[in-house]
Design a protein around this nucleic acid. Sequence first.
DNA 1: CCGCATCCGTTACGATACTG
DNA 2: CAGTATCGTAACGGATGCGG
Lengths: 125, 125
Amino acid sequence: MKSKIEALPDWRSSCPLSSALDLFGDKWSLLIVRDLAMHGPRTYSQFLAADEKISTNILASKLKVLEEFGLIEHLNPDASSRGNPYKLTEIGAELAPVGLAFREWALKHLGDIHPQMTHLPIAIK
Amino acid sequence: MKSKIEALPDWRSSCPLSSALDLFGDKWSLLIVRDLAMHGPRTYSQFLAADEKISTNILASKLKVLEEFGLIEHLNPDASSRGNPYKLTEIGAELAPVGLAFREWALKHLGDIHPQMTHLPIAIK
DNA sequence: CCGCATCCGTTACGATACTG
DNA sequence: CAGTATCGTAACGGATGCGG
């Protein structure tokens, strides 16, 4: 019984895509998933060190909803948060195709308006 | 020479996923692409009639950036906007895998917290 | 220190009324 | 019909504080 969801979104419609966007239609959630998919388990501080420079309150709130909806969880569920990295659940890992599709599209079509873009998904820190 | 981009995003990083989210990391852009992918060319009023009930100012602003970045264009480029539907460009159409990946994930994992969700991508209007 | 929470200014969103 | 203008609300983002 891991579902302790505080507030469900106000679903805009019955469309699956729309519903996914009700949950992850922001600029940060998929980047958190990306970091976990690329690096494996990752702590709060490590997320903060990513190139995109998320601020602490935003990170905390995004981690909370991702955890509420079962996409991420602490590596050691019984330990305290300190130094206890997050990891992807199986459900969270299955978001990978979304990120990869975005990535493919961006690499193919964003190069001319964003020359610094690299094929590397993220710099290793 | 179709690139008349007013304001490029402040790219947060060189990561392709991050860059895609800089452009489309919101709750509406992909739904506009969805409507065009499902229904073909579609007018302003038809977008407004979708289940998600986007408001007029948001729709106008999203259409503008999608057009600026070459994802959509008017069906008849030389005519006025009135009754002139938007259609996907080839670049825009290539966002389809992103929407489909989101859709697959949602259908697989969102059913229990969103029972009304249907396998239909969108109601035909 | 590390993982947040709080405060607060700024920006984006959203409903509605309105215009050509 | 295809958008703007307006204005209230919610989300974001930086700085800072605080408990463990």
